[in-house]
Amino acid sequence: MEISSNTNRCASQLTAVVTSFNQGEMIQEALKSLLNQTILPDKIIIVDDGSTDEKSLDIIRGLESMVNQVPIMVHRQKNSGVSAARNTGIQLANTTFALVLDGDDKLEPSFVEQALPHIKKSSEIVAVSSWMKTFGVLQSIVCPSGGDIRKFLSHNCCPATHIMRCEAWRKCGGYDETMRTGFEDWDYFLRLLETSPKARIAIVEEALIDYRTVPASSNVRSMDKRLELMKYLMEKHSNAYAKHMVDVMLDLEAISISRLYAWESEMKKQILNSNLSDASKKFMKSPSYGDGGMAAAVRIAARI
Rank of each mutant, 00 (worst) to 15 (best):
M1Y: 11
I3C: 03
I3H: 07
S4Q: 12
N6D: 04
A11Y: 10
T15N: 02
T19K: 12
F21N: 07
N22P: 09
G24A: 04
E29Y: 11
K32E: 13
L35K: 04
N36T: 07
N36A: 00
Q37L: 11
P41T: 10
V47M: 10
G50Y: 12
K55M: 04
S56H: 09
D58L: 12
G62S: 06
S65M: 05
M66E: 12
M73Q: 11
Q77I: 08
T95Y: 03
L101I: 09
Q114P: 07
H118Y: 08
I119G: 12
I119D: 01
K120W: 02
I125H: 03
V128P: 02
S130Y: 03
F135D: 14
Q139N: 15
Q139H: 15
S140Q: 13
L153W: 14
H155E: 13
N156E: 14
C157Q: 15
M164D: 10
C166N: 13
C166G: 00
A168I: 06
R170V: 11
K171N: 07
W186M: 05
D187V: 13
D187L: 10
F189G: 02
R191G: 13
L193R: 07
T195C: 06
R200T: 15
I201K: 00
I201A: 00
I201P: 00
S218Q: 15
S218P: 03
R221S: 08
S222Y: 14
M223S: 12
D224R: 04
L229I: 01
M230Y: 14
M230V: 06
K236L: 05
A242E: 03
H244K: 02
H244T: 00
H244M: 01
L250I: 12
D251L: 08
L260M: 12
K268N: 00
L276I: 10
K281G: 01
K282D: 10
K282G: 03
F283P: 01
F283S: 01
K285S: 13
K285Y: 03
A302Q: 04
R303C: 00
R303P: 00
I304L: 00
